[in-house]
């Protein structure tokens, strides 16, 4: 009984993680400029990765694999926001301005004109 409950919980977590990854991927394709795309991509890093790793941890049970997964989770949570910060900072330095207001609704070529 316990096994089935853990199995169900882990699959629910994995499925939710997958949905988050999918939404993040669609967002990266559909969003209009760099900063909003990064916002969408952060969904894959945060919710997607966390849920998937938690799901696998439940599958692995109490073992060394779970500890390793936990370590991976901690490092992911440390590095991905840092990478996002570095990316956004260098984009801003390179002169990529966030789009606001009307220009958000224009396509790429229109906005440039």
């Amino acid at each position: 009984m316990m096994d089935i409950a853990i199995d169900i919980a882990s699959w629910v977590l994995l499925a939710l993680g997958g949905v988050n990854l999918l939404i993040g991927g669609i967002g990266v394709l559909r969003m209009p400029d760099l900063y909003t795309r990064m916002h969408a991509a952060s969904l894959t890093d945060s919710m997607g990765a966390i849920l998937v790793i938690l799901g696998i941890m439940l599958q692995a049970g109490l073992s060394l694999a779970t500890v390793k997964l936990g370590v991976i989770l901690v490092f992911l949570l440390l590095t991905s926001p840092t990478a996002a910060n570095a990316l956004a900072a260098s984009a801003l330095l390179a002169g990529v301005t966030p789009r606001t207001g009307q220009s958000l609704h224009l396509s790429d070529s229109e906005a440039r004109e």
Partner: peptide
Amino acid sequence: HYLIPRILGRLLIPF
């Protein structure tokens, strides 16, 4: 100049 990558990077290097 970039405080956040630097501090986190330093944290990660020993690992």
